[in-house]
Simulated assay, not measured.
Amino acid sequence: MIEQVYYFNPSLSDASFALSCKNVLSKLVRPDRSIIDQILEHDSPDKADIVLPDGRKFVWYFAIGSMINPISIYLRDIIPLMSYPAKCPNHKIVFRAPNGMADIEACPEAEFHGVIHLLSDEQMSRLDAIEATYHRIIINSSNYQEQNHLVYVYKRIVENQLICPPSERYLDIIIKGCDYYKVQSAYINRLKYEQEVVPRKQPHTFQSFTDIPEDVFYSVEELAQHDGNDPGLPLWLSINGKILEYSGLPPVDHPDYELQYRFYPFFKSRCGGREATYVMARTMYEPLYVISSNDNDLCVQHRAAIEDEFYHRINYVQNKKYWKLIGRLRVTNSSL
């Protein structure tokens, strides 16, 4: 039996992405051009950093994955000083296991395209924390006027992982960003029509948490107490009003420790003691759904998609035994 190959459908999310841009990007306060010009006075194409006389530092960052997309980068509270399309010679983009995330690979005579952002050093440090499975390297880039500049790019820490297709959602994010920043159309078309993808799940296949203790409710205040900062209280988080409890990190010498330790800081800092659906909507941006200027304004299907994603993360074999459903969140806001 021949396995079916799926390719990206570029039209499904066009309207939602356009509305998301209108909702959030049109309200951003852009840096004054004179400030950018003052920074660029200290720029050198043979350096990936700009250091001002007062010690402030700025970074040229070549985005290859979701950070190409203006909504994705906005949802991480990052506003570039400037952005422009560019290409990287003698390298190619590959998508690697386990989730088909973008990586770069040296390849003579090849080139890939993306978007270069000028960020503050503080913004770049925050991205370093987010891109925990990558490390920064310096490569040469060229803008569409054939001007070269050294830039930082993220490369996977674990090298030579298997090649696997990206998810349709992830490739959609990349392509929408390429379109927005006017990356070369031939490159965009290769991504659209030649790159195999793992198709999106259909809403009728979404799974949700159902094994919830009956008649057990906790207040928002009780949930907030379990934010992971009190060693005497277990970490709680809520997904669509369903509260899960984390049993805690295993011993350092336990086989699961490294994986649990890698993700625990995210759950604690971003999700602990709160309704995490809104956080996950920002973390796992899906162009199919409109991003509103009001974080709490999520449609029913978007909420279901987020819960499905979280359901599968929690039920992953190395995570399942660390989480349990303990009750529901008592709320008066009907939006939940």
Rank of each mutant, 00 (worst) to 15 (best):
F206I: 02
V300K: 14
Y84A: 08
L259I: 07
Q123A: 15
D77M: 07
E111S: 15
V290Q: 05
I50S: 06
I73F: 02
F206G: 02
W323N: 03
D32N: 15
K176R: 10
F267Q: 04
Y311L: 01
L150Y: 12
P70I: 00
Q184H: 14
L288E: 13
H91C: 12
I212L: 02
Y218N: 05
D32K: 15
N315W: 12
A102H: 01
P10L: 12
S335I: 09
E194V: 04
P45M: 08
P255I: 01
P231H: 12
D295V: 07
A106Y: 13
S334F: 08
T332D: 14
F266P: 03
V51D: 14
P70S: 02
K47D: 15
I243H: 00
F206Q: 03
P70V: 03
C271D: 01
G241Q: 04
P166F: 09
V158F: 08
H149D: 08
G114W: 00
N148L: 11
K155W: 04
N229W: 12
L298N: 06
Q301G: 06
V51N: 14
D32H: 15
H135G: 07
V220C: 13
P108Y: 07
Q4R: 13
R136Q: 10
F206N: 05
A106W: 11
G272I: 02
Q184L: 14
R136W: 07
R328Y: 03
S142I: 15
S292Q: 05
R313W: 13
F62E: 01
P250Y: 06
L233Q: 04
G272C: 09
S293N: 15
Q195M: 13
K192Y: 11
R76P: 03
D227S: 15
D103Y: 00
S208R: 14
K47Y: 14
V220G: 10
A86L: 06
R30T: 14
R96H: 05
T332P: 08
S219G: 08
Y218A: 04
E111C: 14
S11R: 13
Y170C: 05
P85S: 02
P31L: 05
